[in-house]
Design a protein around this nucleic acid. Structure first.
Lengths: 250, 250
DNA sequence: CTATCAAAAATCGTATGCGAAAACTGGGGA
DNA sequence: TCCCCAGTTTTCGCATACGATTTTTGATAG
């Protein structure tokens, strides 16, 4: 081994993130952009991600680095990193020497993602259940009530958004940060996929809110974690199945 | 479509100047390496990842870009991408303007990861079960037999490696590529974590191979997917529980 | 001897520029 | 008419260089 690297890994074992707060500097990105995030790579990642998720860059949209650089005012290097991260997230597909484009999903993958999410969410819901305070349960119940309202107003978009908010309200304090991260990534994928193939099974939403209430009841009465997991998993798996029934063509 | 026209690449505002040519056959830079491994970013990713997973770069090891660049012969740009991807994988922690270091895990996270893996693996095993041919089942059974052999020879490392091989032999043909990707990432995390806190519960391995056989039997006789999922999930969750019992301090 | 501050070192962040690989386009031959 | 091939264009890949920020250290006052 090279003796040169002997001084590595010795410094500052604490290494915690320092709360830096330094403004002033480059002329390109507007000042507020920097305050929100950190590096331009980070900002670019957030920007591209939000644009993909809100549909500005639809499925199949080609993300050309030079073009994006000119558009956002940053150079290609931060954009490259952002695209790589989005690639890891599964939101864009990158081909060497060809380019990157927003991922295109087939409808069957929505079901796949829902099934994966069912498992993760079931587990997360179960381990978070004993940690929830009555206040938090009430807040979740209130979100569910707003879902009913969105349903009455025939607002599928709001319903979907609230659905996500509902589930995150349950496992937002999940002790396993990695699990939270996986859930967020999977929800993001799902949100984007639903933009590709807009899927909405009519009868499903009504049952969904009923199941939400059931889950909350189980949590409230301190039910067994295994049962909560089973119910929460079945809840989302039922959505996947409903989708499968509605679109057997794939 | 619409994205096609607005390009205006705007290149080569500069004429011909400073034709610097570099032709050094460095460690990663030789021409034939490109055909084998892809881009240098990809190669760097694979290299760093393998070194982290095989323990060359242990937990907490500081990954200094300049040093890595000098060591591997590539510039910092591909290394940055590699580190970002490893960050997404959860194998390294990157702090802005500070540096990257190999992630350090607490023993409780091994249990968390095992629990997550249990859910994903249970589902994957279930949906792959009807797709397995008798030959493939026989191959999996043979791997399980080698696990028994490793157990008789008191070779925990080989046992762990075979355990991974066994499970991948079942869901290697999983129709959901994303699920495969998640499983691989989670296994990688787990492999690395086990390097941090070497965990091995004595009695667990024997039961593990028995449960493997049980899972194979269920697959062979075409059992219900729900039952296969339940058993496969319980199999790995039992490992997590065994760990929890053995180390209540974590 | 300790605390504080300034200068220096170390490290990351990103802009610029050039080379290389793939796609596109046009012309020539079967 | 269709296929093949060479030149052009577009785009990514990455090496270098410089700027920004953080940490460390050495000197100095208390």
């Amino acid at each position: 081994m090279t003796a040169r690297g002997a001084r590595t890994a010795e410094r500052s074992a604490t290494g915690a993130m320092a709360g830096v707060r330094k403004d002033e500097g480059t002329a390109l990105g507007s000042a507020k952009d920097r305050s929100t995030g950190g590096s331009k790579a980070e900002q670019s990642y957030e920007l591209l991600r939000s644009r993909i998720l809100d549909g500005t860059y639809g499925p199949g949209y080609r993300l050309v680095m030079n073009q994006l650089a000119q558009e956002t005012g940053v150079s290609t290097i931060p954009l490259r990193e952002a695209l790589r991260r989005l690639q890891s997230d599964g939101l864009v597909e990158v081909v060497r020497n060809i380019g990157a484009r927003v991922a295109v999903f087939e409808s069957v993958q929505v079901e796949h993602s829902l099934q994966i999410l069912a498992r993760l969410e079931g587990y997360a819901t179960a381990i978070c259940a004993p940690l929830l305070t009555p206040d938090q349960i009430a807040a979740s119940r209130e979100i569910n009530a707003r879902m009913v309202a969105a349903l009455d107003e025939f607002d599928p978009a709001a319903f979907t958004a609230l659905n996500r908010t509902f589930h995150f309200s349950i496992y937002q304090h999940c002790p396993d940060a990695h699990l939270r991260s996986l859930l967020e990534a999977e929800w993001a994928r799902l949100d984007h996929m639903r933009r590709s193939t807009f899927t909405y099974v009519p009868g499903r939403a009504r049952r969904s809110v009923v199941e939400h209430e059931h889950i909350l009841d189980l949590i409230e009465r301190g039910a067994d974690m295994a049962e909560i997991e089973r119910v929460a998993c079945a809840h989302k798996a039922a959505t996947a199945d409903a989708l499968h029934q509605a679109k057997p063509s794939g």
